[in-house]
Structure formats: structure tokens, C-alpha cells
Amino acid sequence: MTEYKLVVVGAGGVGKSALTIQLIQNHFVDEYDPTIEDSYRKQVVIDGETCLLDILDTAGQEEYSAMRDQYMRTGEGFLCVFAINNTKSFEDIHHYREQIKRVKDSEDVPMVLVGNKCDLPSRTVDTKQAQDLARSYGIPFIETSAKTRQGVDDAFYTLVREIRKHKEKMSKDGKKKKKKSKTKCVIM
């Protein structure tokens, strides 16, 4: 069974824990209790493949930012979460993405942009803004509501699919490099 290491990042209060708990335990946590770091595991079937999701729910508070490099190193894919009623959390996505790329030393890291709290009427981040940002990053965008469960499975499952595509691409690139290195030079 394939294991996928997913990391949920975003500013404090955007609903990272609520999304994760909704996926794992099928219930909505409405009281806000700032996370330092929590880890969850769940076995699911995605596109006919049974897999184990190892999900790291991270601290959004700035005082825990020193811990970010460590979990970013171990993560295979990242859910970059903002709240649709919090423009600052949307603007912060850029910083999370840049930090992930720096730590992973790669421009090509599996990510999904997630606009959470889409059940709320007080939207300050337009869907088109988020779609445009995701398009500019070359990553999928999904709106979710941890409260109603809308888009929750889709967000995590899409990230797994992005990781699969990335692994497939990397193995193809690896095979191309191996083929090239088999060419021999004969000096007579």
C-alpha cells in the first residue's frame, strides 16, 4: 500500500485542523484551538488504489514558523489553505509557496490551493482571484467548507493525484537520464 505524506499549511484560523478532522473523523470542530502540530493517518481508496494518507496539520501562528522547514522537508505534497473571508490569509499563500519551493529546492512541488469556509456569506476573496492565482502557479484550486464537508475529500484526493503525477514524471525523467548515460565512448 502506497503511503502519501501530505502537509496542510496556511495562516492561523483558516480551518486547516477543521478540514483535516472532517476528512479523518467526519465531524466539524467549530471551536478554535490553535494547533502546534498534529499528525493523522487514514486509509482510503483513490482511483481504485488503496493508500495510506499521513497528514500533518501544522501551526499557522507566526511564533511556530521555525518548525516549518522541518515538516516541509518531509512532506510530499501540500494543501495551501486560505479562508475566503480573510484576504490576508490569501496573500500569505505566496509566502508559504515560496518557502516550500526553497526548502524542497524545487520549482515543481505537488500543491493544491484550497479556499476554505465557502459556506460563509462574508467572502472577501473572489473565486476568480483564487483561480487566477492557482493557474499562475500551475496547481489545482478547490473551494471547501469544513463545516458542510463540501470539497473536503476532493481537496485531499486531488493532492494525492498531483503527487502521483509528480512521481510518474520524475521516474520518466530518471529513465531518460539513465538511457543517456548508457551511451559509451570508444577510443581507438
Rank of each mutant, 00 (worst) to 15 (best):
A155K: 00
I163E: 05
K172N: 14
C51H: 06
V186F: 02
K5G: 03
P121C: 07
N26Y: 06
V109I: 10
N26Q: 06
L53G: 04
R135F: 06
D105W: 07
Q70E: 14
I187D: 15
D38E: 11
L159K: 00
V44S: 09
K42F: 07
E3A: 11
G10Y: 00
V114F: 01
T127H: 13
L53A: 08
G48P: 04
V103D: 08
S89C: 02
G174I: 10
K176I: 04
F90R: 01
D126P: 04
N116I: 07
K167P: 02
V152N: 06
Y137I: 10
A11K: 01
G13R: 06
K178Q: 11
Y71S: 11
M188K: 14
L19N: 10
E107A: 12
T2F: 07
P34A: 08
K165F: 03
V44W: 04
I93H: 02
S17G: 08
T50P: 10
C80R: 01
H27P: 05
T74F: 09
E49K: 06
V29I: 12
Q25V: 01
Y40N: 13
K88S: 07
E91R: 02
R164V: 13
K5E: 02
K177F: 09
T158E: 09
L120D: 06
E3C: 10
G151Q: 11
E76C: 15
K175V: 08
M111E: 00
V109P: 05
I46N: 08
T87H: 14
M188S: 15
Q43M: 03
D54W: 01
D154A: 12
N85D: 11
I84P: 15
M111W: 05
L79F: 06
H94S: 07
G77F: 08
G115S: 06
C118S: 11
K180A: 11
I100N: 05
A83R: 03
Q129S: 10
E168T: 11
R135V: 06
K104T: 08
V14W: 00
G12E: 09
V44R: 08
G138A: 05
E168G: 05
E63A: 03
Q22W: 06
S122P: 08
K104N: 06
V29F: 09
E62T: 08
S136T: 14
D126C: 09
C185L: 12
R102A: 08
A83I: 00
S136M: 08
H166V: 06
G10A: 02
G10T: 00
L159H: 00
S122N: 09
K42S: 09
V114H: 00
R97P: 03
I36K: 14
G75T: 13
L19T: 11
V186P: 15
D126T: 09
H27M: 06
R68T: 11
L56E: 13
K167T: 03
D47H: 04
I139Q: 08
V186A: 15
I187S: 15
D54G: 05
E162T: 03
H27C: 08
Y64R: 12
R164S: 10
K16G: 07
K101N: 07
K117A: 13
K165L: 04
K178F: 06
M67W: 03
Y137A: 09
L6G: 00
S171F: 14
Y96F: 15
D126Q: 08
I163G: 01
E91A: 04
T158P: 01
G13Q: 07
M111I: 09
V112Y: 00
V14R: 01
D38Y: 07
R135L: 07
G15K: 00
I24S: 14
K169S: 06
E31W: 05
D38A: 06
A130G: 11
G75E: 04
K176A: 11
V81P: 02
C51M: 05
S181G: 13
T50K: 07
H166W: 08
I36L: 09
C185H: 15
E91C: 02
K175G: 08
T148G: 09
D105K: 03
R97M: 15
L52S: 14
T20F: 08
T74Q: 13
I187Q: 15
D105C: 14
L6E: 00
T124F: 10
E107N: 07
D33C: 09
I55Y: 08
F78M: 01
I36P: 13
R135I: 03
R68P: 13
K42H: 07
F141D: 01
K167L: 02
D108F: 07
F90K: 05
